[in-house]
């Protein structure tokens, strides 16, 4: 699930250890805003997993900015 899909009205993605999709999506996302540096987990700065608007899940992340529809 290396792209965001809607699960129970929430946009979720599980990038696993390969963060290329996380970087590609963030590079095109106008919502991206870097989180506190201590909370970043990808050495490539612009990456969904480094975004202030991602929320970690037991598996993957949830985007808190993508519109509901």
């Amino acid at each position: 699930m290396s792209q965001f899909i809607k699960i129970d009205s929430r946009w979720c993605a599980d990038f696993g250890n390969d963060l290329s999709a996380s970087r590609d999506i963030a590079a095109c996302c106008h919502y991206f805003d870097a989180d506190d540096e201590d909370e970043q987990v990808d050495d490539v700065a612009i990456s969904c997993v480094n975004c202030a608007f991602r929320r970690w899940l037991a598996q993957g992340v949830e985007c808190m900015k993508l519109p509901p529809s």
Partner: peptide, 17 residues
């Protein structure tokens, strides 16, 4: 120091816990 706790649907947390 930053200590990571369990991320679980039954736990209320902001974004990292």
């Amino acid at each position: 120091t930053r200590h990571q706790l369990l991320v679980h649907p039954d736990i209320a947390y902001t974004s990292h816990n």
